[in-house]
Design a protein around this nucleic acid. Structure first.
Lengths: 128, 128
DNA sequence: TTGGTATTTAACCGAGTAGTTATTTAACTG
DNA sequence: CAGTTAAATAACTACTCGGTTAAATACCAA
């Protein structure tokens, strides 16, 4: 997918991730975003353009300011991509104990007694 | 963090993501990994080096083959980073209905009756 | 040792990236 | 209007990246 290229590429730069971290606290202007960095304003402006192009932020207009805010779409896409690999690092995957606990939690009184079938994935549990 | 730079940068290339997708099916050789791509073997070898440097894969030795496999560490780091932004795109955040459902699921019979306090984050629920 | 297979390294090229300074656009303000 | 502030664009430079081909390395097998 084309957008994933742009998104991962945008996230590869520490300045841009720092900008996102700041925006997680709330919408703000370019000046404000630039303050923590030892670089020119045009440089920050470029970073913002990269983030915007990747769908990670959106910009509006307010007098001479261009407040930026986080745009969730691209982040969601990254999370969806990660979904396919979660079983490799998430401890709650492929472990019978956790699986049974989850079953019990969701359907009290329905926990299986015998041997459970091999659990391939339980990732979708997260979403609701 | 230095490693996040390398990891996001590595993931920004579609060839490298395709390689990871193949490795999700199981350990395999460089030849095998290179087959689907219309590029030279050295090019694939370079991609593998990038993935290895980013901590996304690990390589072993078996006769003249160098089988590659997924290394979960870096993927986990990406997931941990995403954690801070999940509330922006995950529907199960900041919504009373889902929160109550979760509470009910985890502690049957303990669901609150009155107005619930503002839910700031429920992300940690995922991990167990 | 000679040869075959798998993989990496070296040297190079064209395109893209992250930064700079200087200039320009856009909007408010007196 | 002129002046000020916020931000984007232009033009440039140094460096990185993804690919190439040709050569080198590592291991097995006869």
């Amino acid at each position: 997918m084309k957008t994933l290229d742009a998104t991962f590429s945008a996230l590869a730069d520490p300045t841009r991730r720092a900008i996102l971290a700041r925006l997680a606290l709330g919408e703000t202007s370019v000046m404000e975003l630039a303050k923590p960095f030892a670089m020119s304003l045009p440089a920050v402006s470029k970073h913002l353009k990269v983030l915007e192009h990747a769908g990670l932020i959106a910009r509006s207009r307010e007098a001479q300011w261009r407040p930026c805010r986080i745009e969730p779409r691209a982040l969601k896409q990254v999370d969806d991509w990660l979904e396919h690999y979660r079983r490799f690092y998430d401890e709650s995957f492929d472990r019978l104990g956790d699986y049974l606990k989850k079953l019990q939690a969701k359907e009290p009184g329905k926990a299986p007694k015998g041997k459970a079938p091999k659990v391939v994935s339980t990732a979708h549990d997260r979403k609701k």
